[in-house]
């Protein structure tokens, strides 16, 4: 059973950050979740991270020749976008291998985030 969704006036304001992650070994959604939370908790602390309302929404695997590239969308609070971007920047390692996160853009809805930044060329989502 799920809680009824809040009316629009009581909802938290959100932004959706589109990111791409290039890594030496393949990543999946769980790996991304653990790295992003761990880096944010270490950098900003527990109290500040609780204000972000972080949520990794979806992750897509992108075909690439020599690297493993994934693109995804992160949901965060509207007022804390800069702090989340800073935490994403600071992710550098996963299981001893190098990884890098770039933010492609920020938007207010999931649909426009996908349309503008996650361009799928003949790919199945």
């Amino acid at each position: 059973m799920k809680l009824k969704i809040l009316p629009p006036t009581l909802r938290n304001d959100k932004r959706y950050i589109s990111f791409e992650a290039i890594s030496e070994i393949p990543l999946n959604r769980d790996d991304v979740i653990s790295r992003v939370w761990e880096t944010s908790l270490n950098f900003h602390g527990e109290c500040k991270t609780s204000k972000f309302d972080l949520w990794i929404m979806k992750v897509w695997k992108i075909e690439s020749i020599d690297n493993n590239v994934i693109k995804g969308i992160i949901q965060c609070s509207r007022n804390e976008v800069n702090s989340v971007r800073a935490a994403l920047l600071l992710i550098s390692k996963f299981s001893g291998r190098s990884v890098v996160f770039h933010t492609l853009g920020i938007s207010g809805t999931v649909k426009s985030a996908i349309k503008k930044f996650i361009i799928i060329e003949n790919q199945h989502k």
Binding site: E38, L41, T49, S50, K51, D53
Partner: peptide
């Protein structure tokens, strides 16, 4: 610790928001 504590804090914030309204 860590992420479960952060999640708990955001749950508290949500309850306080409802309390104010």
């Amino acid at each position: 610790r860590l992420s479960s504590r952060a999640r708990l804090l955001s749950q508290f914030r949500q309850i306080i928001k409802m309390h104010r309204k």
